[in-house]
Amino acid sequence: QTIHNGDQTYHYDNPEEAIKVAQKLAKIYNLTVTVKGNTVQVH
């Protein structure tokens, strides 16, 4: 599972963990989380 947060990319073995982290980032920075296959984008 990969999270793209602007210019930063994070890799997680656990998809659920990746989505949790993405949602935390989204709340902190007031962003949107988009899940596309194995990629979670925060923008």
Rank of each mutant, 00 (worst) to 15 (best):
E16D: 09
K27E: 14
H4P: 09
K20S: 08
I19T: 07
V21L: 05
Q41N: 08
H4S: 09
H4G: 09
E17A: 08
N5D: 12
V21C: 15
Q41L: 13
V42P: 01
I28V: 08
D7W: 15
Q8M: 14
E16P: 01
A26W: 03
L31G: 08
Q23A: 13
K24L: 14
K36V: 14
G6L: 11
N30V: 03
N5I: 14
V33W: 00
T2K: 12
T32G: 04
E17K: 07
E17T: 14
K27M: 09
H11G: 03
N14S: 15
V42W: 02
H4I: 10
Q41F: 14
T34K: 04
G37T: 01
K36W: 05
T34R: 03
T39H: 04
E16A: 09
T32R: 04
L25T: 00
H43F: 06
I3W: 05
T32E: 11
K36E: 12
T39C: 13
P15E: 13
N30P: 08
Y10E: 02
E17R: 06
A26S: 12
K36L: 13
T32P: 07
H43G: 04
T39V: 12
D7N: 09
T9V: 14
Y10A: 03
T9M: 13
E17Q: 11
Y10K: 03
I28F: 12
Y10L: 11
A26P: 00
L25D: 01
V33E: 00
V42L: 05
T39S: 08
G6A: 12
E16C: 06
T34C: 09
Q41Y: 15
G37R: 02
V42S: 00
N30S: 05
L31T: 11
I19Q: 13
A22V: 03
A22W: 05
T2Y: 09
H11Q: 09
N38C: 14
P15L: 08
G37L: 04
I3L: 11
V40N: 00
Y10V: 03
Q8G: 08
Y29D: 15
A26M: 10
K36H: 14
K36P: 01
V21A: 15
P15A: 12
I28S: 04
V35H: 02
T2D: 13
G37F: 03
N38F: 02
Q23D: 07
Q1I: 13
Y12H: 02
I3E: 11
V35W: 00
N5E: 11
I19Y: 11
N14D: 09
H11K: 07
K24E: 10
T39Y: 06
V33N: 00
D13N: 10
N14K: 04
V40Y: 00
I3T: 11
I3A: 10
N30Q: 08
H43Y: 05
G6N: 12
H4D: 07
L25I: 05
A18P: 01
E16R: 06
N30M: 06
K24R: 13
N30E: 08
Q8D: 11
Q8V: 14
Q23N: 10
L25E: 01
D13L: 08
K36F: 08
A18V: 01
A18D: 00
A18S: 01
L25M: 05
K24C: 15
K24P: 00
K24F: 13
Y12M: 05
D7Y: 14
V21F: 10
G37E: 04
V33Q: 00
Y10M: 05
A18T: 02
K27R: 10
D13C: 14
N38K: 04
A26R: 14
T32M: 10
Y12I: 02
I19H: 10
H11N: 06
V35D: 00
Q1F: 08
I28L: 13
Y12V: 03
V35C: 03
A18E: 01
Q41W: 10
T39K: 04
D13A: 13
T39M: 12
H43N: 04
I19M: 14
L31R: 02
E17D: 10
I19S: 07
N30T: 04
A22D: 00
H43Q: 06
I3Q: 10
N30I: 05
T34D: 04
L31M: 08
V33P: 00
I28K: 10
T9E: 11
I19F: 11
A26V: 08
K24S: 07
P15K: 07
I3K: 11
Y10P: 02
D13S: 12
N5R: 13
Q23K: 13
L25W: 05
L31K: 06
I19P: 00
H43K: 08
I28G: 02
Q1L: 11
V35E: 01
H4Y: 07
E17F: 07
G6Q: 11
T34Y: 04
V40K: 00
Q23P: 01
L25C: 05
T9D: 04
I19L: 14
V33R: 00
H11D: 05
Y10F: 12
N5M: 13
Q8T: 13
E17G: 02
T39Q: 06
H43E: 04
P15R: 06
D7M: 13
N5P: 11
H43C: 12
A22I: 04
T2S: 11
Y12S: 02
A22M: 03
T9I: 15
Q1S: 12
K20W: 07
Y12C: 15
Y10D: 01
Y29K: 15
A26H: 06
T34V: 09
V33G: 00
T39N: 04
L31Y: 07
T32N: 10
Q23F: 04
G37K: 02
H11W: 13
A22H: 01
T39G: 02
Q8F: 15
G37I: 03
G6K: 11
Q23T: 10
V40P: 00
K36T: 13
V40M: 02
Y10H: 04
K27Q: 11
E17S: 06
Q1V: 13
V33C: 03
V40G: 00
E17H: 06
I3R: 10
N38E: 02
V35A: 02
T9S: 07
Q1M: 10
P15D: 06
A22P: 00
T32W: 06
D7T: 13
H43P: 02
K27D: 13
K36G: 03
Y29Q: 15
K27A: 09
G6M: 11
L25G: 00
Q23L: 09
Y10R: 04
L25R: 00
N14I: 03
V33S: 01
T2E: 12
Y29L: 15
T39F: 06
I19A: 11
V42D: 00
A18Q: 01
K27H: 07
T39D: 05
Q41D: 02
N14T: 15
K24M: 15
V33D: 01
H43R: 08
H11T: 14
V21S: 07
K20L: 11
E17M: 13
H43W: 06
H4Q: 09
T9R: 05
E17C: 10
Q8Y: 15
V33A: 02
V35Q: 03
N14G: 05
A18C: 08
D7E: 07
E17I: 14
H11M: 10
P15W: 10
K24A: 12
H11V: 14
T9Y: 15
Y12P: 02
H4A: 08
N30F: 10
E16F: 07
T9H: 07
D7A: 08
I19W: 13
Q23Y: 05
A18W: 04
P15I: 10
Q41I: 15
T2P: 10
T2V: 11
A22C: 08
H43M: 07
T39R: 04
N38I: 04
D13H: 06
N5K: 11
Y10C: 14
A26F: 03
G6F: 13
K20R: 13
K20I: 08
Y29P: 15
Q23W: 04
V40T: 01
D13V: 06
H43I: 08
Y10G: 02
G37M: 03
Q41G: 02
V21I: 10
I19V: 08
Q1T: 12
H4F: 09
G37S: 02
T9F: 15
K27L: 11
Q8P: 07
N14V: 03
L31D: 08
T39W: 06
K36Y: 07
K20E: 08
G37C: 14
I3M: 12
K36Q: 13
L31V: 13
Y29I: 14
I28Y: 14
I3C: 14
K20G: 03
V33T: 03
G37V: 02
Y10N: 02
N38S: 11
I28P: 00
T34Q: 05
N14Y: 04
K24H: 12
T34A: 03
A22S: 03
Y10W: 08
I19E: 10
P15T: 07
V21N: 07
K24I: 15
I3S: 11
Q1N: 11
P15C: 12
V35G: 01
T32Y: 07
I28E: 14
G37P: 00
N30K: 06
N38G: 05
V21T: 05
N14H: 04
L25A: 01
E17P: 00
K20P: 00
N30G: 15
T39E: 06
V42Y: 02
T2N: 13
A26I: 09
Q8E: 11
V40Q: 00
V42F: 03
Y12G: 02
Q41S: 10
A22T: 01
N30R: 03
K24T: 10
